[in-house]
Design a protein around this nucleic acid. Structure first.
Length: 273
DNA sequence: ACTATGCCCTGGGTGC
DNA sequence: TGCACCCAGGGCATAG
């Protein structure tokens, strides 16, 4: 599941390889037409061909590919998407959904088992992510911002952490990890957190995102970096998918529950309701 | 304005 | 071995 650290790792991998390259040809494969949101697949292929890539940005879980005509190609990998750079002769991945041929005999493959990934081609990146709030690693995601977003809210804090309007880039893995670090029960009402807890939670979000970035992301299943390699962070998580195993702090068995429609992992002792 | 739920999609795992 | 079923979940639409 590519969340902020995984998308940022891909951005860093691809940026030096794509900078200044011209896109020769783009093919969206049959059966994957739905990924093209802002245009029809054929229109998008045509609009991308011949464009030069200027630089790569990121906002939350969205990868932003800035082109020489001022447009931005906005890619979201959702759960199983990956963008893998390689030599044009590299054999196609089993779940290749699209292919981008560059002017240096290299290719970027868009692989996506579940076909949830999306592409937009827009003048302003905000058109492709109208709901997105501040990036979780930006200064705009401040203690004051988080406190204001949580104030008066009765929804579970886990659900609010997953809300991209609150903090863009936090997904299921890092929401669970941050709540464990901050010792907050995932089902607790968002508005019930003290100012000190809100501050601890924001710090925990940053801590877990930076820890994962340092390990090039988490590869629980499908995530791959920009070169097709796996991240290393999944071996150092505290709670995510560790149900039945002991909590590192107190030894209590990690539990799993369903919250906001997502598998939610926590320590029943460290994270009291 | 806020909260909860279902949908999209497909492979992997499980149970019979 | 085969098959039905369930699970994974980000963002969006919809209902209340």
């Amino acid at each position: 599941m590519p969340e902020l650290p995984e998308v940022e790792t891909i951005r860093r991998d691809l940026a030096p390889l794509l900078h200044g390259r011209r896109i020769e040809r783009v093919r969206i494969h049959p059966g994957s037409e739905r990924m093209a949101i802002s245009h029809s697949p054929r229109e998008m292929e045509h609009a991308l061909a011949g464009r030069k890539i200027e630089d790569l940005g990121r906002h939350g879980k969205y990868l932003l590919i800035h082109l020489d005509d001022g447009q931005t190609w906005v890619v979201h990998l959702r759960m199983t998407g990956s963008l893998v750079h390689g030599d044009a002769s590299m054999p196609a991945h089993r779940f290749e959904r699209a292919r981008i041929d560059l002017d240096d005999r290299c290719t970027v493959r868009f692989n996506d088992m579940r076909k949830f990934g999306t592409w937009h081609l827009v003048e302003d990146p905000r058109e492709a992510m109208p709901q997105s709030g501040p990036d979780a690693l930006s200064e705009a995601f401040s203690d004051a911002w988080l406190e204001a977003r949580l104030k008066g809210r009765t929804a579970p804090i886990k659900a609010l952490l997953l809300d991209q309007r609150v903090a863009a880039g936090v997904g299921n893995i890092y929401a669970d990890e941050a709540l464990w670090i901050a010792r907050v029960h995932p089902g607790r009402e968002g508005g019930s957190l003290s100012r000190a807890k809100v501050k601890a939670l924001r710090a925990a979000v940053l801590e877990t995102l930076h820890a994962s970035l340092g390990a090039r992301g988490s590869s629980f299943s499908d995530y791959r970096d920009g070169l097709g390699g796996e991240g290393l962070h999944h071996v150092q998580v505290h709670v995510f998918r560790r149900e039945g195993q002991p909590c590192e702090r107190c030894g209590t068995e990690i539990r799993k529950m369903r919250l906001a429609g997502r598998g939610t992992h926590y320590c029943p002792r460290c994270q009291r309701a």
